[in-house]
């Protein structure tokens, strides 16, 4: 009892005459721990850098010196043939359209699937409350599989084309959106749902009229952000053989010198598209979340 009332054993008791000492000791200990963690972290980074350097074909420092070789070579050739650029950019528009279409369709399909799955996976809203963990795990699994895996397998079965990329991105979008959508839906006000239930609305009516109007702005904003991400993803998947502008880029790159003007044209078109979509979705999202500006 005495120990509890007056602290630990007499020897270990902080000296009451110097109240700052205990605080300073704690500070020192904290600083020590922080220092040790920082040291471990730096060592980890250094070791990681070292082993990445080891496993890489070219070294970091030697590579740094030739970092601008390739861009310079490409740009020099493109500059020499700059008259071709507008025509080449115009010619790459159909495949750009395919890339954007892949992204748009997969965002649409993925978000629609995510709408349904996320409601089924949200506690308090689910149609079958016992099955929520099942739907949650299903969404996790869809999110975990990288797009390139599904795309490559589907290319093997279906042949190269936009569909494998579309399905791959849509699946991943479903998983990623499902999680975010369900987080939004969890915070929805349940009173409208109760009101609808009291007049005999069934589950789909309760969701459509009671939940969706509350969450739609946030969901749309997430879907727009996803569209941005998916345009990049579909360009990358083109590079592994799924069609679109990524595929054209790969072909032009493999050709090497002589077709660098095409490479630059595709770079420019892709960069411009990404920036435009970025800006557009930024504006739209701002308006959706903060309300329309008068």
């Amino acid at each position: 009892m005495v120990d509890i009332a007056f602290g630990p054993s007499p020897g270990n008791r902080p000296d009451p005459s110097a109240p700052g000492a205990a605080y300073l000791a704690m500070q020192r200990r904290k600083r020590l721990y922080g220092g040790v963690i920082a040291l471990v972290f730096v060592l980890l980074l250094a070791a990681g850098f070292d082993s990445a350097e080891d496993r890489n074909a070219g070294g970091f420092l030697s590579g740094l010196a030739q970092l601008d070789d390739f861009p310079r070579e490409v740009l020099a050739e493109a500059w020499a043939k700059r008259a071709n650029l507008p025509a080449l950019m115009w010619a790459s528009l159909p495949s750009l359209l395919e890339t954007v279409n892949i992204a748009a369709v997969s965002t649409l399909v993925g978000s629609l699937a995510a709408c349904l799955l996320s409601l089924l996976a949200t506690r308090g809203l689910a149609r079958w409350p016992r099955l929520t963990p099942v739907f949650r795990r299903a969404l996790d699994a869809m999110r975990a599989i990288p797009e390139v895996v599904i795309a490559l397998i589907l290319i093997y079965v279906l042949g190269s084309g936009p569909i494998p990329a579309m399905v791959a991105i849509a699946l991943h979008t479903t998983g990623a959106m499902g999680k975010l959508f369900s987080e939004v839906a969890e915070n929805a006000d349940l009173k409208p749902v109760e009101g609808l239930a009291s007049v005999g609305a069934n589950w789909s009516q309760r969701m459509w009229l009671g939940v969706i109007p509350q969450v739609a702005p946030n969901w749309l904003s997430y879907a727009l952000l996803r569209f941005e991400i998916n345009v990049r993803a579909s360009a990358i998947l083109g590079f592994v053989g799924a069609g679109g502008i990524g595929y054209d880029l790969k072909i032009a790159m493999q050709w090497g010198g002589g077709r660098y003007d095409t490479v630059v044209a595709i770079f420019l078109v892709l960069f411009a598209t990404i920036v435009v979509i970025d800006q557009f979705s930024d504006r739209l999202r701002h308006r959706l979340v903060k309300g329309a500006t008068p």
Binding site: A52, E53, N56, A57, G58, G63, L67, D69, F70
Partner: peptide, 15 residues
């Protein structure tokens, strides 16, 4: 693409 030309294939380039 740009980096793999300078550093060669490997994890450093990816990083």
């Amino acid at each position: 693409i740009i980096l793999s030309r300078a550093f060669g294939p490997g994890p450093m380039t990816g990083a």
